[in-house]
Write a protein that binds this DNA or RNA. Structure first.
Lengths: 213, 213
DNA sequence: GGACAAGCGGAAGGTGCCCTCCACTTGAGC
DNA sequence: GCTCAAGTGGAGGGCACCTTCCGCTTGTCC
């Protein structure tokens, strides 16, 4: 395990360029093909050796975390912005639609956002903050009588996980599918018929499923 | 590529027992852990060598096809049974709920049912037949005024793919999540507000994603 | 009961992955 | 310009997977 230069250490300019190119390449690759793209392949596309890649990011997970940290930021920002909407129901719809659209446009994003990164503390912090804000939005939408009272914030996880299942070859198809899915969900969230009990979904494993026994 | 004894060839009794045990073991393994369970692991759990496994099933895909062929049969049977319901809306609900429940109970099933097996012709045939029957059920449910007119049969694929995203550690949690998801969907399917255009989702690759370029 | 094809297990081949090692190159400060 | 730590690329170690090979065992049929 080597040390990764933090904000304090300054990189040499060529190293800086390489690093930026790596992150940009990885972002595109993950978006297009999901998190399965190999480190060797990323290095090749970025025009560097694998050692260079591993010097900056000692593990694949660290690369994933880096790549999606600002995407996650954009995502939580979207939640905060939507929560500021004077109409809570419209804000609620924006959150659901916005997150699902992001997810559909980026195959790696869903995996990254739904995944718990044990090492990346700020990720969890931002997530928690966004969830809190969202919870406020939910209760206001309920108070306004637009959102069904038995909706729980765990249902957002349900929506995101369901939306994640809509894997398709083309981005356009994924976005179209996500839009229709969201429309169905939003209709259901306005209705008021009895529902099975809410479920708290566990987050998925990061890279590689765990093998029982 | 070796030859696989068909219905015509009779297996030796010990070989027959081994074969049955392999299929049973694989069924359990796939149900519990998905299609990622390795051939070596299946052979080990079945108490046979890998060569024995490969003698019966020359490729992993052939084993998967064999294992899920009768599950698929049960699935299409469920569709036919539900379609016979005098109340088309109730039948429709049974199809949606039934398929999703099966999917939630068996991690491998979703992958197998949503996946196109190029080699397994009967699979596709049964699928096609079930889809035809389901289409009839859909139009009757619409005629009865219970199902929204803009529902398309492709939306069933949407539901199944969405439900497939609800991967959880425990079966109970998966079933609970699927129930709630289905309840939301059924509410939305009764509503009648405008909706984005329907989407035709492509089926996923069988084993291992394809690598572009 | 004996012959032999069918069946068998485990070692090993081939591939792809994550990650490390190490000899070579190069930008930065004097 | 010279020095040298920082940076680099490619080979390869370790592992897991799917699949094949081959010498040994065993059910079956006469």
């Amino acid at each position: 395990m080597r040390d990764v230069p933090g904000e304090t250490t300054r990189l040499r300019v060529d190293a800086r360029e390489n690093r930026d190119r790596i992150v940009a390449t990885a972002r595109e690759a993950f978006a297009a093909d999901g998190l399965d793209v190999s480190m060797t392949e990323i290095a090749r596309r970025a025009g560097v050796g694998v050692a260079t890649l591993y010097r900056r990011f000692p593990t694949k997970e660290s690369l994933v975390t880096e790549v999606f940290s600002d995407q996650l930021e954009a995502c939580t920002a979207e939640v905060h912005r939507a929560a500021a909407d004077p109409d809570p129901w419209r804000g609620f719809c924006r959150v659901v639609a916005g997150l699902c659209e992001m997810q559909a446009r980026d195959r790696g994003f869903s995996a990254a956002f739904l995944t718990a990164f044990p090492d990346a503390v700020p990720v969890d912090e931002k997530r928690a903050s966004a969830e809190e804000v969202f919870a406020g939005l939910v209760s206001r939408a309920k108070a306004a009588g637009r959102l069904r009272p038995d909706f729980t914030t765990d249902d957002l996880t349900l929506v995101l996980m369901a939306n994640d299942g809509l894997v398709t070859d083309s981005v356009d198809a994924a976005v179209a599918a996500a839009r229709r899915l969201v429309a169905y969900f939003l209709q259901a969230f306005q209705a008021n018929d009895p529902l099975p009990p809410p479920v708290r979904l566990g987050l998925r494993e990061a890279l590689g499923r765990d093998r029982p026994r």
